[in-house]
């Protein structure tokens, strides 16, 4: 095993006024704090659109789901649009289980 950090968060600017966080690895109890900090930093920078690319997530637990939900509620409070632009089939299943598929903006 390479000595990779369990979660990597890359910040991209897909278009002016938008920020895309690309998360790769494991979003769980141990990494949720780092991911939340990155979300908070991005929102504080004052973007119009916050995007999550979660296609590279190998694992997510309830703390990880909390990062997604907090991002959604925090973005809504600031009037920032929030959408998930890519995700794994398993994550889509989880989002359906918690019945957030109607609320979150998911890729078709």
């Amino acid at each position: 095993m390479q000595d990779m950090p369990p979660l990597q968060v890359e910040s991209l600017i897909p278009e002016p006024g938008a920020a895309r966080l690309v998360m790769t690895g494991e979003l769980d109890y141990t990494t949720a704090r780092d991911a939340s900090a990155e979300v908070a930093r991005t929102l504080a920078a004052g973007v119009d659109v916050l995007e999550f690319d979660l296609a590279g997530l190998k694992f997510i637990d309830s703390s990880g789901m909390a990062v997604v939900m907090n991002a959604y509620t925090d973005a809504e409070e600031r009037g920032t649009a929030f959408r998930i632009v890519a995700l794994t089939p398993y994550l889509r299943h989880l989002i359906e289980v918690v019945a957030l598929d109607d609320v979150l903006d998911l890729p078709g």
Partner: peptide, 13 residues
């Protein structure tokens, strides 16, 4: 049966 998790949304389905 399904429904929204608690603690996230003001209105749950």
């Amino acid at each position: 049966a399904r429904g929204s998790l608690l603690g996230a949304l003001k209105e749950i389905s």
